[in-house]
Nucleic acid binder design. Structure first.
Lengths: 347, 347
DNA sequence: CTGTTAGCGCCTTCAA
DNA sequence: TTGAAGGCGCTAACAG
């Protein structure tokens, strides 16, 4: 059943049916009524592929993340979908599993479906892929990595602010030995957090014991192992800042397993504020990345670029990058350090 | 740049280009080579909308879940995407947020994009929507709810088996007072679990204190509240089975907050085996629903129906429903009950 | 305000 | 093996 069937039954041309649907004001109320009646009766709705083809607009957006399974992403996805739906856009969501090959495939799939824009929230993507997209004049919005250019906008999370607040908080509580569990060295955004931490201490004239900066991999297991290493130190830290919440959860667990208490013996701070952070034991003090806002800003930036591009103009990057603030959420995994000596804590 | 551009440059007709891409064997090696060269040079790929239009096949599948944010779904989504991609299908994923209006909109969107099949993993959906899909001869696969019919397959999770194993486990450990925290009463699959629990105890001739069956809502908070109620009982249970892991996590927390220990004072069993279940403190004993398998079976059932339908035959439901087994994963949140009296436990 | 016509990009007969 | 032609379902001029 197609538009012609509707036209036939309503005794109008297909053009009129099309108009009734797309620009109701350009049609007499009487005919419109007749057409709508048939449409309802037939339960008709237009075929989007045909529409896309003739209009040159697919009303589809691509959203590429590295791992749906990572608790950071679902909220982002949900937020993105909410606005997309609101704006009558369809979403092509894909999770690459950190696999460059799948990433390349994802880009190809999106391009074949003629997405109007792509939000790329993965870390591992090489420039040639972005180029592939840019060549086709498809606007992009990147998270953390890459550089803005024609049609390429960027969103930058202010990790530094969050790290600063976290360190400040720990310092205020009286901690002097603060450790950091980083994310995977290959992950740019993880390195930013690490550097921010180091710089933050340096700015405050604190000389950092280099053994206090250990490497995790943004998983619970990684956090567990890293924390275990920290605990094995002759003089362990009294507070630990983790590169993400999953890591912090692993650290929490390691402390528990060592028979110590959080926050009495050791304070722990996470990063991200995933939903579950509220439900760890004790509830995790962490730095919040507002995923809702992230989704909104990403979508809007994309939309702006799409509309700009539709003016026929060559795509131009917006000035600078969109910034997302972060802030500390204080819960119960942080407290003042014990007065007693550390060696005793470990007994 | 379209297929004609390629044809022109390769000095062949568009038909030949199309053949080169879709049925290479129907073309001379020489011409094929020439065509491919141009394709590479131009970085050409076919427009899927045009393809869908002319072929009548969109190679798109719909996947509707109620909440991406619920840890149960991401793994399911990932699994589904994996196979879909493998089979060269695109996915339209949507999360309805438990909102019937969004559910209706989702169905409409999918139909407009002419999906070849839909996997519906939500609870709240009224029959008229399914009808809307069935009318269009689009195969469906339903999880837990609804009834099979022409083109409608169903996947059934064997909750009962899991519940039985869990109860058995608790009984073996020596527990006599076993409580159950249910999911939302409106959720069919939650009611199935609840009934399974009740029946299981009855089968074993255990008379259940009705105050031991309390209502949660499949959230951590709900689990916390329900467990608190249980703890307030004159004689609390020594073991609790939760309708899902989130609930169990809340229960875990409530027990902790009451100054009691899991599993020493109270044993807790979850359901689902979400990723994080492994990382609670203590790690959660829970009933696993294999999401990978679920995704695979759903996809394959859908694919079978699609292919059957392509034969021109009217869609026919497959015999019975696909079953998914469940099994207990024993970790550390369960143990033997204390010998002492409960009143003392609560001191 | 409405109808006619052309064509979006592709695949698929049908002939050659 | 290849090309010409028609049409998938729809929208967008252009007439009327």
């Amino acid at each position: 059943m197609d538009i012609r069937e509707v036209a036939r039954r309503a005794k109008v041309s297909t053009a009129t049916v099309s108009r009734t649907i797309n620009r109701p004001e350009s049609v007499t109320a009487a005919t419109a009524e007749r057409v709508w009646e048939v449409i309802r009766e037939l339960r008709y709705f237009p075929n989007r592929h045909a529409r896309s083809l003739v209009s040159g607009r697919s009303r589809i957006l691509g959203l590429i993340v590295s791992d749906v399974t990572n608790p950071f992403f679902p909220e982002l996805i949900q937020g993105f979908e909410d606005i997309a739906v609101e704006h009558n856009y369809e979403l092509l969501i894909t999770s690459t599993r950190y696999d460059p090959a799948r990433m390349a495939l994802a880009v190809k799939r999106m391009l074949e479906r003629t997405v109007e824009g792509v939000a790329i929230m993965t870390s591992e993507m090489d420039v040639s892929l972005l180029e592939e997209i840019a060549i086709r004049n498809v606007p992009m919005i990147l998270l953390d990595v890459g550089s803005p250019g024609p049609g390429i906008s960027k969103i930058v999370i202010d990790y530094e602010a969050g790290i600063n607040q976290a360190v400040e908080h720990l310092l205020d509580l009286g901690h002097a030995r603060i450790a950091f569990i980083s994310g995977p060295p290959a992950l740019e955004s993880a390195q930013i957090r690490r550097s921010a931490f180091l710089r933050c201490l340096m700015d405050r004239g604190i000389i950092e014991d280099e053994r206090f900066v250990v490497t995790g991999d943004h998983t619970v297991d990684g956090g567990f192992r890293a924390m275990s290493d920290l605990l094995a130190l002759p003089i362990p830290p009294t507070a630990v800042l983790a590169s993400n919440d999953l890591t912090a959860m692993g650290a929490l667990r390691a402390v528990r397993r060592a028979g110590l208490d959080v926050p009495r013996d050791i304070s722990i701070v996470g990063f991200d504020d995933i939903h579950l952070a509220e439900f760890t034991e004790p509830p995790l003090t962490t730095v919040r990345i507002p995923r809702e806002e992230l989704a909104h800003k990403a979508f809007n930036a994309l939309l702006r670029n799409i509309n700009a591009g539709r003016g026929g103009a060559v795509l131009v990057a917006e000035h600078g990058a969109e910034r997302i603030g972060t802030h500390l959420v204080i819960r119960s995994s942080t407290g003042s350090p014990r007065r007693k000596e550390t060696s005793e804590q470990r007994a």
